[in-house]
């Protein structure tokens, strides 16, 4: 008798708990924030498949919505993404403009992580344009902002390695690239492959062609797994230069031919 009562009670309790769980709903975001998030997510999907124009449109719409409801976090993310997509589309000045809006905004206050990201992107843009001093200056700022919960250390170190390579300082380039590789190994295959490529360049600079070839091979495997055409091309060119250094002109020609077949999109 007691057993039956106990069983009934537990059944009722389970039912009540189940209903309570059903009634519990996830915290609701307002419709505009939902819309902005959906635009942003759609932009990311387009970016992932290399459709940068679509990504640009989606991020622009997300930014409009986030600005309308003054979603500071969303605005920062949208502007960083717009800068990145514009850079990839070759619109360097537009990219600079978005980053400047973020970095020089004295009305809204963005988090240090976003400022560090913007400063890093700014430095990389300047480096692309050949402004080494400007890039170094922005990297210093990025490093200062990149403190807690900042995942940009390997990016900053890679950028420093790139600067050292521009200055033909193979030892410094190796130092920063090694740091970048240590920071990104296991976390970011993109940055790890970048670090390997920088190390390969540094080895080439020192005349260590076999080591450069080995690193280029490793980077190529990673970049192929990530599906990054431009990086694959750079890895193949690095291998070609290493073969040239080793005196194997035939292999160098073959790798250059392979690189020429890669069409970036």
């Amino acid at each position: 008798m007691m057993d039956r009562l106990r069983f009934s009670a537990s059944l009722v309790l389970s039912g009540v708990l189940f209903l309570a769980a059903c009634g519990q709903t996830a915290p609701v975001r307002n419709a505009r924030l939902e819309l902005a998030a959906e635009y942003s997510q759609s932009g990311q999907r387009a970016y992932d498949r290399g459709d940068y124009l679509t990504a640009l449109r989606q991020y622009e719409m997300a930014l409009q919505v986030d600005v309308a409801v003054e979603n500071t976090l969303g605005v920062a993310i949208d502007m960083l993404n717009l800068a990145r997509v514009n850079q990839l589309l070759g619109r360097v000045e537009v990219a600079h403009a978005y980053l400047d809006k973020l970095l020089l905004d004295d009305a809204l206050e963005y988090g240090n992580t976003y400022l560090a990201n913007a400063a890093t992107q700014k430095a990389l843009l300047m480096l692309h344009q050949g402004d080494v001093n400007g890039a170094r200056s922005w990297l210093e700022k990025a490093s200062a902002w990149c403190v807690a919960e900042c995942l940009l250390e390997s990016v900053i170190d890679n950028a420093r390695a790139a600067i050292a390579l521009r200055e033909m300082d193979g030892d410094q380039a190796m130092h920063w690239a090694n740091r970048a590789a240590s920071a990104s190994r296991g976390d970011s295959p993109l940055e790890y492959a970048n670090a390997l490529r920088h190390m390969g360049e540094a080895h080439l600079m020192r005349g260590e062609f076999s080591a450069a070839l080995r690193l280029a091979d490793e980077a190529l495997v990673l970049d192929k797994s990530l599906g990054l055409p431009e990086k694959i091309r750079q890895d193949l060119l690095l291998s070609a230069r290493a073969y040239e250094g080793l005196g194997d002109a035939e292999q160098a020609r073959r790798f250059r031919a392979r690189a020429a077949r890669i069409i970036s999109r």
């Binding site: 709903t25 942003s40 997510q41 990311q44 976090l73 993310i77 480096l127 990016v155 950028a159």
Partner: peptide, 24 residues
Amino acid sequence: RSWPFSGWFSKPEAQVLPADGYVT
């Protein structure tokens, strides 16, 4: 938005695109 379906669908979240530390 209700349990248990809320766990089945990922909420759209805005994310920063990964920065790329390589310069050609």
